[in-house]
Amino acid sequence: MNPVAIIGGSALVIGGIGFFVGIVLIWASQKFAVETNPLVDEVIEVLPGANCGACGYAGCADFGEKVVDGLAQIDGCPVGGFDTAKLIGELLGQEVKEAESIYPFVRCNGGLNCTDNIDYVGIEDCRAVMMTSIGEKGCKYGCMGRGTCVRACPFGAIEIGEDRFPHINKNLCKSCGLCVEVCPNGVMVMANDSEQVHVLCRSHDKGKAVKAVCEFGCIGCKICVKNCPADAITVTNFLAEIDQEKCTNCGQCVENCPQKSIVMRSTGVEAAS
């Protein structure tokens, strides 16, 4: 057969199919078009697009729809923060006030200062370590340092340092709070930068038991309670808690703490270790 006829014939057939399908698609896209709110698309455009779910919705698109419908808060995206909220506010014609940025913060001072019970061999996950009968560390309340928060962070903002503590990179952190949610011991907490004074211990054990396993654990001695001029500290179950609303950052408790478990952290500095 003539090669020209073969090529020409097949080009004609395939081109014809393409032309026909194209017409069908154009017709279908007009006939079955779903009407979308153009505002929703604009809002989705300004969202970060990480689909992390930290807002509580299925993803950025879902959050965008809910914001336009008025079901979600304009500043509900913790990742985008104030900048995104401002853009959404401009689109929806609402004003947004800037809130103070909050970052996760590790309330434990154990790490290498804490004794080890067992040589753990197994999967690298704090929750799995907590499943062993007595736990890897002498203190069952503290940071296990196995990096569950590291894997939970969608932005790569956390890494385990040489001191076996998670270190938070504030440039990458979007304050989504997933690390706080996933921590099995509740060691992580979101804290304002203005909240300076923190108790770096979660142990509810008695003083003697705490001293046996950790150099810097809170023993519940109540010296901080006596010294606090603002009555902001309470000791429940051998653990001091600071009421951040009452705290004036005076630093009296930090100076008097015999275990050095209460620390003053300056803005932008990681947890003392």
């Binding site: 197994g122 999967i123 996950d125 929750r127 799995a128 499943m131």
Partner: peptide, 13 residues
């Protein structure tokens, strides 16, 4: 691989 521990972990979660 820590198969049993991973399976146990899944059960607890």
């Amino acid at each position: 691989r820590h198969l049993v521990q991973l399976i146990k972990f899944a059960k607890v979660e």
